[in-house]
Design a protein around this nucleic acid. Structure first.
Length: 203
DNA sequence: CCACGGATTGGCT
DNA sequence: GCCAATCCGTGGA
């Protein structure tokens, strides 16, 4: 795809309500420069986390060394390590000290797919019907995009990791559902994904 | 100070 | 469907 055809999202985009940002991130393209090539994926599934009222949010009990990026204001990438082996990436939203972020749960591979395959499986190619397994989960997405603790705190208005697109890309068929894999605040319907998209982690 | 368990994944039954 | 893998931040003692 042509990166030049889309505009990089400005800081203003991120400094808004976490649910507004979550839904508007759907359909947009997240880009990461990796080994001189651009990895690009269409965001198809996200979850909102709000430290004020959401016990499942890392920010719920206040700022710590681990979650401090969640408090640095909209437009940063918050990356954390979990289960002893996986990384998950979040787009921080709102203002400084809000403690709100959007977890990227799944993307549809668009560009740099060979490099994603290499990052995920350490080999050059996979079967065509395995492509949907490249980034259909928060840990899988980070592995494919080579996102780890070094990327925590990345400024998304820079040219290393950023998100591109415009308002027209926002899908009109967004499903709202309960979040996945959490034990607290399980009833909050804060998971959003594109209806019938094959690259969503779970339907 | 230390035991617990997690915003997950993949392999095996 | 079930469960092990494998760190390390965090909360309770």
């Amino acid at each position: 795809m042509k990166l030049s055809g889309h505009k990089k999202l400005p800081l203003k985009f991120y400094k808004r309500n976490v649910h507004t940002v979550a839904k508007e991130l759907l359909g947009k393209y997240i880009v990461k420069k990796n080994n001189d090539i651009y990895l690009c994926g269409k965001i198809v599934e996200v979850e909102a986390y709000d430290g004020n009222i959401d016990e499942a949010a890392h920010s719920f009990r206040g700022k710590t060394e681990r979650n401090r990026v969640m408090f640095e204001g909209g437009g940063k990438l918050y990356v954390y390590f979990t289960y002893g082996m996986h990384f998950c990436a979040n787009v921080v939203t709102g203002n400084i000290n809000d403690g709100k972020a959007v977890l990227i749960r799944a993307v549809e591979p668009v560009d740099g797919i060979e490099q994603m395959i290499l990052n995920r499986f350490g080999k050059k190619s996979i079967k065509e019907n395995e492509i949907k397994n490249l980034c259909n989960g928060p840990g899988k997405f980070c592995k494919a995009f080579n996102i780890d603790r070094n990327d925590n705190g990345t400024d998304l208005t820079g040219d290393y990791i950023f998100i591109i697109g415009n308002k027209e890309l926002t899908p009109d068929n967004i499903v709202t559902a309960q979040r996945i894999g959490i034990k607290k605040s399980v009833d909050l319907p804060w998971r959003y994904y594109i209806k019938e998209n094959k690259f969503v982690s779970k339907r």
